[in-house]
């Protein structure tokens, strides 16, 4: 219950400052640009949203750390963390509250892309079940990006440091399944290691989701990544809240 009070405050503060508007606007513009110019939405001649979802990992890579970087860094810088942590709420409740608030905004941005969905339905007859599944998948993935970014925001008082760290760590999670990384491992490691590294990648797990397959293993992967990074946040904040 108290998590929700925290979440409501966070959510409000995103809209009291222009952060939420800027995030949503940039997300909409960029996802549009990616879909139509880089994804060849029209030239493909298929009524689906694959070119739209395909670029999401790369959009989140920069946009999610940007919206999450202030979560803890600003609390530390302004000293409000002292106020927050001496209120009768546990660190876990606070972490969950902050996550929920930010995740709702990411979801809101996704909701605002529905005109694209309507357009596809106008142009042809896509499988709407696939699109719903892909929306759920991308929202789950954004949660994983968010958990990583919020956790790293707790590491430093500086939002810039938090942003750079988050982008780097998210980048590792995104590319670990790409050929560059896999090739680097293939030469010396056995298959088990290569498979393990590849299985850490957001891309590997999101690929199927973008095509509308919500496999239990992929869902579980994103939920687990999110949960473990949130848990890490709790530990980090308890350790260094006073620094």
């Amino acid at each position: 219950m108290r998590s929700l009070t925290i979440a409501r405050r966070e959510f409000g503060s995103f809209f009291a400052t222009p952060i939420a508007y800027v995030y949503i606007a940039i997300f909409l513009v960029l996802s549009g640009v990616c879909t139509f110019f880089m994804g060849d939405f029209y030239a493909r001649g298929q009524a689906d949203l694959l070119p739209f979802f395909e670029f999401h990992p790369w959009l989140y890579l920069f946009l999610v750390p940007a919206i999450a970087m202030r979560s803890w860094a600003e609390e530390k810088k302004s000293g409000t963390i002292e106020l927050l942590m001496t209120l009768p709420v546990s660190t876990t409740q606070t972490v969950i509250g902050k996550f929920l608030a930010c995740w709702t905004i990411l979801g809101l941005a996704l909701l605002m892309t529905t005109p694209l969905w309507l357009t596809v339905n106008y142009l042809g007859s896509p499988d709407n079940g696939i699109i719903v599944a892909a929306y759920i998948g991308t929202w789950l993935m954004s949660g994983a990006f968010l958990a990583i970014s919020q956790c790293l925001s707790a590491v430093s008082r500086s939002q810039v440091v938090a942003f750079v760290l988050s982008v780097v760590v998210c980048f590792i999670f995104v590319v670990s399944g790409s050929d560059i990384v896999i090739d680097a491992f293939k030469n010396w490691a056995n298959n088990l290691v290569v498979d393990t590294v590849a299985s850490f990648s957001f891309l590997t797990h999101f690929d199927a989701m973008a095509k509308g397959v919500l496999a239990a293993s992929d869902v579980a992967y994103f939920v687990l990544v999110t949960a473990s990074w949130l848990f890490a946040s709790v530990i980090i904040i308890d350790e260094n809240k006073a620094d």
Binding site: G12, S13, A16
Partner: peptide, 18 residues
């Protein structure tokens, strides 16, 4: 230290809620 982006009333309501 206070949450500067809130109004006074919002802030007090938030604390009361927590």
């Amino acid at each position: 230290p206070l949450y500067g982006d809130m109004t006074v009333f919002q802030f007090l309501c938030f604390i009361a809620g927590v």
